[in-house]
């Protein structure tokens, strides 16, 4: 389907919001840096198991823009590769949680009756547990790994989408066009996917953007607690945790990694806010 005039009108309105444009710029830079990390990072080799004790613990200077860590690795390079880890985590987690939660919410909200009761009670159980604690429990059961961290965060994240979509479906299914499609004999799948889902899409997309920041934060929290990707994979949360041992002398370790997390969360939140404003007015 080609982009409609409504889409371009929405884009123009988005472009008029300076904070939203700033957010989009931040996200664009981070995503590009993560994709092109090998080309962009000053010392790509420092992302791995690299050791250079001669240049260890150097504060930020012209050679090492954000300084080096305890074994001489360039912090900026590790942050750029850390973004790759974080974005892969965010996309994977939401890539699982959004379709899963959306499907659960669609089915629960449209089917009603027993199916709805089962889906929404399961959702409630997940929502009742604090997400970080649940994710820690899941990761703690096994050996920490990046895959497991993603699975754990996805497991605590999908119920939010189930509840969000469920609520929208409950009201949309009473709309005339849904009634009309049902009476003409359209299948439930066609009605859910073709008629109801497009009306949930803007809200899901907005939440997706806001959640990218939050998932990155939760992933960083897990790795801060030692439950993230194992060394030597560069991970922003792990970097904050490691650097915290050297505060306040080698302040740049924690501050730059923490700032990097902050920047990512800020960027995605600004984009999410901008999208929400755009979609709110189009209805």
């Amino acid at each position: 389907m080609t982009a409609s005039p409504e889409f371009w009108r929405a884009m123009r309105r988005y472009a008029q919001d300076p904070m939203a444009v700033l957010g989009a710029a931040i996200v664009a830079v981070l995503v590009l840096a993560a994709i092109l990390a090998e080309q962009v990072a000053p010392y790509p080799a420092h992302a791995g198991a690299f050791v250079d004790f001669v240049n260890a613990n150097r504060p930020p200077d012209a050679t090492y823009l954000l300084g080096t860590d305890g074994i001489g690795r360039d912090v900026l390079s590790r942050i750029i590769f850390g973004y790759r880890t974080s974005l892969v985590l965010g996309l994977t987690v939401l890539g699982i949680a959004v379709p899963l939660g959306t499907a659960a919410g669609l089915v629960g909200g449209y089917a009603g009756g027993r199916a709805e009761a089962v889906v929404m009670r399961i959702t409630d159980v997940f929502l009742a547990l604090p997400s970080l604690v649940l994710a820690m429990a899941i990761v703690g059961l096994f050996r920490p790994s990046q895959i497991l961290a993603m699975a754990a965060v996805a497991a605590v994240w999908w119920p939010w989408y189930a509840r969000l979509v469920h609520g929208m479906v409950r009201s949309i299914r009473l709309e005339g066009y849904v009634v009309s499609a049902r009476l003409i004999g359209a299948s439930p799948v066609r009605i859910m996917v073709g008629e109801i889902l497009p009306n949930c899409a803007p809200t899901i997309l907005t939440k997706f953007s806001l959640d990218m920041g939050l998932v990155i934060l939760l992933g960083a929290s897990l790795s801060f607690l030692g439950l993230g990707a194992p060394a030597p994979i560069p991970d922003l949360g792990t970097m904050v945790a490691d650097g915290a041992n050297y505060l306040p002398d080698q302040w740049w370790l924690s501050v730059t990694a923490g700032g990097a997390i902050f920047l990512a969360v800020l960027g995605f939140n600004l984009v999410g806010d901008g999208l929400r404003d755009v979609f709110d007015t189009t209805g």
Partner: peptide, 9 residues
């Protein structure tokens, strides 16, 4: 106003 899906042509 409710009879037509706002997101479909």
């Amino acid at each position: 106003y409710s009879a037509l899906n706002p997101r479909k042509s």
